[in-house]
Write a protein that binds this DNA or RNA. Structure first.
Length: 194
DNA sequence: TGAATGATGCGCT
DNA sequence: GCGCATCATTCAT
């Protein structure tokens, strides 16, 4: 089993926009209580530091966002709109708060365990949004701050990189719109929006 | 096929 | 009390 390379902390502890490009095409693996789930990452957004008004860390450290201020390579999961969770990967060296929001992925292993939402859509739409991903994987605030270099949840390089990576402005924000900090695999049908 | 809208809880001012 | 890194449904074209 496995045989693939688990991404180390040094992968995450770099400038966020570099990590964003490199993370497209990597696989996220979650060893859930029900079994192994995995998916190929096809869309992320960058949220970078005090100077980015859309970043939760822009107004300083709080109980909610404190993991972003710590070491790279841990999960940052928050609750939004009263019913959804969003998964992020903390980037940059400790003390420099930043993260990548996982927006979409292609289901790989454990698709039968992934919790489907209300509507019935094809497999390529099952993880096509940040809220949908966490719902399908069963991730909540209970999984905030998990170490991505551990064995419960981690990223792997399975040698399936993106062909073309497109950059656009970020979705669903009111401030910091000018930055083109959304990255996605142009060849994927699982991207949330084109 | 796209725009509008309701659901629903909580962090923060 | 307001606004939110969303989504599924409804209604209009």
């Amino acid at each position: 089993m496995g045989g693939f390379r688990k991404l180390r902390r040094s992968f995450y502890a770099r400038p966020t926009l570099q990590v964003a490009r490199d993370i497209i095409g990597k696989f996220i693996v979650y060893r859930s209580p029900q079994g192994k789930l995995s998916a190929r990452i096809v869309e992320v957004e960058a949220y970078i530091g005090r100077g980015d008004p859309a970043c939760h860390a822009a107004r300083g450290k709080t109980e909610r966002n404190e993991v972003m201020f710590g070491k790279a390579g841990v999960t940052y999961i928050y609750f939004i709109y009263g019913m959804y969770h969003c998964l992020n990967f903390v980037t940059e060296p400790a003390g420099r708060p930043a993260a990548l929001l996982l927006r979409a992925a292609e289901p790989a292993e454990g698709t039968g365990l992934m919790k489907k939402g209300g509507s019935r859509q094809g497999l390529d739409r099952l993880l096509s949004g940040p809220g949908k991903f966490c719902r399908a994987f069963g991730l909540t605030r209970a999984h905030n701050g998990l170490d991505l270099t551990g064995d419960k949840i981690y990223l792997e390089d399975r040698n399936k990189p993106a062909g073309e990576i497109v950059t656009t402005t970020r979705i669903g924000i009111n401030h910091g719109r000018q930055h083109r900090w959304r990255f996605y695999d142009a060849g994927s049908a699982a991207v949330s929006r084109k």
